[in-house]
């Protein structure tokens, strides 16, 4: 049986991991390569690195980081942030990334999803979506949540699936940083709508939240950052807890 995946997310800025509370007030949470190796050892199923200040001149730093992560890691990892064209993705793939995550660039140019999927296969393309509840609708936000779009989350995700996205990383901005649990209603709704895996993101505070999101929303994977970085949740404990609740996990 396919295991549910636990995915620590490392937001990287200037070569260090940080985690925003509701996307602002960044705090330093350590060296990404070191953290990555620790997580792999603890039983993380995958890792996601998001370069949250991806500017052109910093790409080289990121490529170097990807290379050193790849050298130390024998679990899959995804890189996101600042990928706007095929060449960006190719450089990351060649550095050792297993998947890339795109967000703003895909909204501005949906064709990018199709081009990436055709070039590297759908399994390589993760679409990250930051969503916020506004006037009864779920609306896609860009630039780490600072920019509102006119896109409704549901229709954007459906479109992305049709274009060739292999996986959706869905972050609820309303839940992110609150530690009050994932947005199970929205995640469950989206999960029923599409046939590609969903990674739930935003709101993890305790182990029960993970149990809840797998049981209620039926997602494939759950992602969190600070609860792992600050040791509030230890991955081996989390997995034992999930197993006790009959959720298939890799131990």
């Amino acid at each position: 049986m396919l295991s549910k995946r636990i995915i620590p997310c490392l937001d990287v800025k200037d070569g260090r991991t940080v985690k925003g509370i509701n996307f602002v007030d960044l705090r330093d949470a350590g060296d990404p390569v070191e953290l990555a190796a620790q997580y792999a050892k603890q039983g993380a199923d995958e890792l996601v690195f998001l370069d949250i200040t991806a500017t052109h001149e910093r790409r080289k730093t990121m490529i170097e980081m990807v290379k050193s992560v790849a050298r130390q890691l024998n679990i899959p990892f995804t890189i996101g942030g600042g990928i706007t064209e095929i060449a960006d993705a190719e450089a990351l793939l060649n550095a050792g990334a297993d998947k890339i995550s795109i967000n703003s660039a895909a909204v501005k140019n949906p064709q990018l999803i199709e081009d990436l999927a055709k070039t590297f296969g759908v399994q390589f393309v993760v679409l990250a979506v930051d969503t916020k509840h506004i006037n009864g609708k779920n609306i896609v936000h860009l630039n780490g949540g600072r920019l509102i779009t006119e896109l409704e989350t549901e229709s954007w995700i459906k479109q992305a699936e049709n274009l060739g996205a292999g996986e959706i990383l869905l972050t609820s901005m309303d839940h992110d940083g609150t530690k009050q649990g994932f947005d199970c209603d929205l995640l469950g709704k989206i999960n029923k709508m599409i046939n590609i895996p969903i990674i739930a993101s935003g709101g993890a505070g305790k182990t029960e939240h993970f149990t809840e999101v797998f049981q209620k929303a039926g997602v494939d994977a759950a992602l969190a950052a600070s609860v792992f970085h600050y040791g509030e949740i230890l991955i081996p404990d989390l997995k034992q807890e999930l197993k006790r609740n009959n959720i298939p996990v890799r131990i």
Binding site: M1, L2, S3, E167, P197, D220
Partner: peptide
């Protein structure tokens, strides 16, 4: 889901 993705 397709792709079959993850640990099995």
């Amino acid at each position: 889901n397709v792709p079959h993705m993850g640990w099995n």
